[in-house]
């Protein structure tokens, strides 16, 4: 039984070792400075080394940008849903709406990926693209930051709403009653008493959702495109760390070449990023929880 319990540790060690060894191998072939601060991502598959530009910044920017769009969709919708469900909704509405939103979390990401590629992408092009409803020519192709961001936001709604719902419910009723007693309306109570009290927990929930967004693969592989660029235009195709891990490791290139090994360095970056976010999020959530117990 101890052995079974230790598998968790072995897995972590396995992840760290397989990432570290291959990353070290990569940095032996490729300059670490160029990797972390390079603004150009242009791997060559023809030769080994030399010709490839493997800067991580465009990928990190793509990841960040898509995550920001996703959170911009998920946070307002998720948060307002949570507030409505926990403060206003009748038990019947709650019994229907809460599971309905949570279904969104149970759908495999490949489904969202296909949805982004084949439904949302063409839909956005028909609105923002050439000859679209708005009469503007902003979006060239279906694969774009906006496409992936919106669909990823859909996926994240239940993460934000469920966790926030739990946290808002954990705010003691006495605080609300005190506020009502002073003559505040329900929305004033929520805005000025409940939300500030629940804020640390909500921030934790948002950080967890953000770490989910950064590590998400299938939606960006299918919806965001393959071109790595540093741009502010949400209608352009961009790519992310996860999408490039997939494309670098599923190609035909030799495992010993820097073009393939860079995927492990990317994986390491991703692992450290998400781990950091999770640790901070769990810390905030845990610290908050101690206040009322």
């Amino acid at each position: 039984m101890i052995a079974a319990a230790s598998i968790a540790i072995l897995t972590t060690i396995g992840i760290v070792l397989s990432l570290v060894f291959n990353t070290v191998e990569f940095f032996r072939l490729y300059n670490a400075w160029d990797f972390f601060f390079g603004v150009e991502w242009a791997p060559s598959f023809s030769g080994r080394g030399g010709a490839s530009e493997l800067g991580v910044l465009p990928l990190l920017w793509g990841t960040l940008y898509i995550s920001i769009v996703a959170l911009a969709v998920a946070i307002p919708i998720g948060l307002f849903s949570a507030i409505y469900l926990s403060e206003y909704a009748s038990p019947r509405v709650r019994a229907i709406a809460k599971p309905a939103l949570e279904v969104l979390a149970g759908i495999p990401t490949i489904v969202y990926g296909l949805f982004a590629l084949l439904t949302v992408g063409p839909l956005l092009v028909s609105v923002f693209g050439e000859g679209g409803y708005l009469g503007v020519d902003w979006q060239g192709g279906g694969r774009a930051v906006l496409t992936a961001g919106i669909v990823m936001g859909m996926m994240l709604i239940p993460f934000v709403s469920s966790l926030s719902d739990d946290i808002i419910n954990a705010v003691p009723q006495a605080m609300r009653d005190g506020s009502y007693g002073l003559g505040a309306t329900q929305s004033e109570t929520i805005r000025q008493v409940v939300l500030p009290a629940a804020l640390p927990g909500i921030v934790g929930a948002i950080l967890l959702a953000a770490s989910r967004a950064i590590g998400e693969t299938m939606i960006v592989v299918l919806g965001a495109g393959a071109a790595a660029r540093l741009s502010l235009n949400p209608f352009e195709a961009m790519t992310t760390v996860t999408a490039k891990i997939v494309s670098q490791l599923t190609g035909d290139s030799d495992f010993a070449s820097p073009e393939a090994l860079v995927a492990f360095a990317l994986g390491m970056t991703l692992f450290v990023l998400t781990l950091g976010l999770n640790v901070i999020a769990l810390y905030i959530v845990r610290k908050y929880r101690e206040q009322y117990d």
């Binding site: 897995t11 397989s18 990432l19 967890l208 590590g215 490791l249 692992f271 640790v279």
Partner: peptide
């Protein structure tokens, strides 16, 4: 922590 590691890292 493992519960929150992105699935692609398990692929690696």
């Amino acid at each position: 922590n493992l519960a929150a590691v992105p699935s692609i890292v398990f692929g690696i």
